[in-house]
C-alpha cells in the first residue's frame, strides 16, 4: 500500500516526537552524570544540555572519593548497594527460573486441568503491600531482614509466576514429537529433558531470564521494606543521596542511575540473538 506524502511526514513526526519524549530523561541523566556540581545544581538559563566542564567527580563521589567541591560526605559508598542489587537480582532470577521452568515443564507435559496455572498467576493479583507487611514479620522472625538472601528469596517468589507462565507458553509450543522421538530411541524422560528439551529451550530460557532479571533489578518497594542498612539495593540507596546543605545530589544520582542501567543493557545485548529466536521459536515445520 502506498501512503500519501503528508501522511508519511505526519507519521515520522509522531514517531520522532515519541522517541524524543522517552529519550529526554535518559539523555538528561547521561549529561548530568558528567557535570560538576556547579553545573548540575544550576537553575534557569545556566542549565545546559552539554556538560561544559565534563568530570567524573560524581562517580568518584558515590564510590567514596570525596572531591573538594562536594562538601558533603557519604555515610557509605555505592559499592555495597551495587553488590546487594546484583546478588539479590541474580539469585532471585535463578530461583524463579529454576522453579518456574520445572513447574512449567511438569504442567505443560503432565498437567491435568487448568486450575494450577491460574492459581499461580493469582499470586500477582494481590496488591504487593497487602502481603508485604506480614512478610516483613515472617522475615524478621527468620532473621532475613536486611539480608541479601532474604531479598533474593522474595524476588524469586514474586517473579515465579512470570517465569512459570513464560516458560509454560514455550513448552506448550514445543512440538511433543521431538521428545517422543528421543524417548522412542531409548532415553529416559529425565535425560530427554536435560539433553534435548533444555538445550532446545535456550532462546526461551534466555528471554524469560532477562525479563525476570529486569523485574528484580528494578524493584524498589520490596527492597525498601526488607532492607535497612547493610544490604540496601541501588534504588533504595539512591534516595539517600541527598544532604541537608545541598538538597538532592542530582549529579550523584545520575551517575548511579547510569551504572544501574548497565547490567540490563549488557544482558540484553548478550542474548539479543536468542531474544529474536525466542519470539519465533519453533524447531519444526508444522
Amino acid at each position: 500500500m502506498r501512503r500519501s506524502l503528508p501522511f508519511e511526514l505526519l507519521r515520522y513526526a509522531m514517531i520522532l516526537l515519541i522517541i524524543a519524549i522517552s529519550l529526554v530523561p535518559t539523555l538528561w541523566m547521561l549529561s548530568m552524570a558528567f557535570k560538576p556540581i556547579a553545573e548540575w545544581s544550576a537553575s534557569g538559563a545556566a542549565l545546559t544540555w552539554w556538560p561544559e566542564n565534563p568530570t567524573l567527580d560524581n562517580f568518584r563521589f558515590i564510590f567514596g572519593q570525596s572531591s573538594s567541591e562536594l562538601i558533603v560526605s557519604l555515610e557509605r559508598t555505592a559499592a555495597r548497594p551495587i553488590m546487594a542489587s546484583l546478588l539479590a537480582a541474580i539469585v532471585g532470577t535463578l530461583i524463579a527460573m529454576t522453579a518456574g521452568t520445572a513447574a512449567a515443564y511438569g504442567l505443560s507435559r503432565f498437567g491435568k486441568g487448568n486450575n494450577l496455572p491460574l492459581a499461580l498467576i493469582q499470586l500477582r493479583l494481590f496488591p504487593p503491600m497487602a502481603v508485604m507487611i506480614p512478610l516483613m514479620i515472617m522475615w524478621s522472625f527468620l532473621g532475613l531482614i536486611d539480608n541479601w538472601f532474604g531479598l533474593a528469596v522474595v524476588y524469586g517468589i514474586v517473579t515465579l509466576p512470570f517465569a512459570f507462565w513464560l516458560m509454560k507458553t514455550f513448552f506448550d509450543d514445543m512440538p511433543r514429537e521431538i521428545e517422543d522421538a528421543a524417548l522412542v530411541e531409548g532415553c529416559t524422560r529425565l535425560r530427554v529433558f536435560a539433553v534435548i528439551t533444555l538445550p532446545m529451550m535456550r532462546p526461551a530460557l534466555a528471554s524469560s531470564a532477562l525479563f525476570v532479571f529486569i523485574m528484580n533489578w528494578s524493584d524498589y518497594l520490596i527492597a525498601l521494606l526488607l532492607t535497612t542498612r547493610d544490604w540496601v539495593t541501588i534504588p533504595v540507596y539512591m534516595t539517600s543521596l541527598s544532604s541537608s546543605m545541598t538538597g538532592q545530589l542530582y549529579g550523584a544520582k545520575a551517575a548511579l542511575g547510569l551504572i544501574a542501567a548497565i547490567p540490563p543493557v549488557i544482558l540484553g545485548i548478550a542474548i539479543q540473538k536468542h531474544l529474536v529466536r525466542g519470539l519465533t521459536f519453533g524447531a519444526l515445520k508444522e
Binding site: 514429537e177 522421538a181 522412542v184 532446545m200 524447531a283
Partner: peptide, 18 residues
C-alpha cells in the same frame, strides 16, 4: 516406549535442531 525397540519417523521430522 523407550524399551519397545521401535524406530519412529515423524511427519514433521522431530530433528534435534541444536
Amino acid at each position: 516406549m523407550s524399551r519397545r525397540g521401535v524406530g519412529f519417523v515423524f511427519q514433521n521430522y522431530a530433528i534435534f535442531t541444536h
